[in-house]
Design a protein around this nucleic acid. Structure first.
Lengths: 207, 207
DNA sequence: CGCATTATTATACGCTTGAACAATAGCGGC
DNA sequence: GCCGCTATTGTTCAAGCGTATAATAATGCG
């Protein structure tokens, strides 16, 4: 009756492994397929360990949601360069892998479907959404200023809502039916659409 | 030990009730909370009855997904009038209740998160998406023809992708954070955006 | 009205779930 | 090199899952 050998992982590392395993299971089997046992197998540990790192499975799932939102927003929030470049990069990043792929949207959708059910997830979601749209709104304000266009708060708000919607919608199309589009087609359509919306070139032909 | 009294429902009716109850449970408790027992309670019957109407729970859920897609697409697919009116109505319908509300997106997201997992749901999804985008593409072709604008297939395709993305994205924003917008704001932004994208008035100021 | 049909209830079964807990193996400090 | 600490294992438990099935009440037909 021998017990398995194992190694004691450094504190934060094992937590991160468990969160990653949670996301893998949700993406592969859906929320209801992401059981404590399945997650433990994926992480290469036994089920009991989950409760050593997290107060409950629900808490682990909530932290996994934070990780998903971070992966979807971090890259786009850290674009650099002049406003025009940043706007172009913002669009391109959100419509290209790894942000735009079927795993991302499976994870996103799994959590969104729980937002109405679980107030904790709802709060995490709201924070992420507001941050994302504010990032875009600031970016647009800088861009319009450079282009000598009206950049009052109300105008920027409307543009941010529209472009946020456009990017989100194209992101979904790309994630769910990527095979229906040609290479680079979605990014090109997004660039052209944003230029039409803002009535200004964003230099997308330079790309 | 008395047995409950009950009434024998006409064939199709009880099926419909069970599907509605399934959707109610998914919206309220999430996919994993939509158990056979919970669904039966919601429908006012006992759990055993489910298997009298459906081969399995999975089959019932798949039919429920078909019902969701129908509820999201039927109204918009049956707009009437001249092309300009149809385009306006198409946009307005998709961004107004009952299509745009938090229950709709919870249901939609719950199923989307399973599309990668379940091939049957994937097929239902694909059919719905293609139909929806083709409806929009045909509508745009009619509209552009009336406006004496270029309406070749490639142009219509690009416009359909962009506007479909825009409408989907605004739909999500409205569903998930309706309280962040003023009454009619999303529809107004959508109309203005579509006009900018197409470079043509769609008569939205008449509304 | 009585009978056959079947929609519906009620109960049971085997399995999986999240959680609890005692036993133990790895590891850092001395 | 041993020892104490604790991260990890392995087992157990009650609850809930989807499904199967037998009993029964409602309904339509002669």
């Amino acid at each position: 009756m021998n017990r398995r050998t194992f190694h004691r992982a450094p504190e934060g590392e094992r937590r991160q492994e468990l969160i990653e395993a949670t996301l893998d299971c949700i993406a592969e089997f859906g929320l209801k397929g992401a059981t404590v046992r399945q997650i433990a197998i994926r992480a290469g540990v036994t089920a009991g360990l989950v409760r050593h790192y997290f107060e409950s499975k629900d808490q682990m799932v909530a932290e996994a949601y934070r990780a998903v939102i971070a992966s979807l927003t971090d890259k786009a929030a850290h674009v650099e360069g002049d406003p025009e470049t940043r706007l172009r990069d913002f669009i391109a990043i959100n419509l290209t892998e790894p942000v735009a792929d079927s795993r991302s949207i499976s994870l996103w959708a799994a959590f969104i479907s729980q937002v109405r059910v679980d107030p904790i997830l709802a709060e995490i979601h709201r924070d992420g959404y507001v941050t994302f749209r504010n990032t875009l709104q600031d970016l647009l304000a800088d861009f319009l200023a450079v282009k000598n266009k009206p950049a009052d708060a109300e105008t920027c708000r409307a543009y941010a809502i529209a472009i946020n919607g456009l990017v989100d919608g194209l992101w979904i199309e790309g994630c769910l039916a990527g095979d229906l589009f040609r290479e680079g087609e979605l990014v090109a359509i997004a660039m052209a659409s944003v230029e039409a919306l803002l009535g200004t070139s964003i230099g997308s032909e330079k790309q």
